[in-house]
């Protein structure tokens, strides 16, 4: 089953495919440079209650604040 949602709504262990990024331009560029672009796969490694998470994308680990995670839309594979 596939569910469309925001990265922020994912839980620890979820795998997520990015479909759209709606954030400030400069932040979009930063995520783009890290390889977080539509079509990429994200693995949520850890997530805090406040939404800050550690993700793995293209082999690298990133800490991502809730403000960034809520602007990343996509589908979660269950």
């Amino acid at each position: 089953m596939i569910q469309a949602k925001r990265l922020l709504d994912c839980q620890t262990g979820d795998r997520f495919t990015v479909s759209q990024i709606r954030l400030e331009e400069s932040l979009c560029h930063r995520l783009q440079a890290l390889g977080i672009v539509p079509g990429c796969q994200i693995h949520v490694l850890y997530k805090k209650r406040i939404g800050t998470m550690v993700i793995r994308c293209r082999g690298a680990r990133y800490a991502l604040g809730a403000g960034a995670a809520k602007g990343i839309a996509g589908v979660r594979a269950i």
């Binding site: 995520l31 680990r61 991502l64 403000g67």
Partner: peptide, 11 residues
């Protein structure tokens, strides 16, 4: 200003 969220690589 809008608070810039955390985006940081963890080595």
């Amino acid at each position: 200003e809008k608070q810039a969220p955390l985006v940081l690589e963890l080595p």
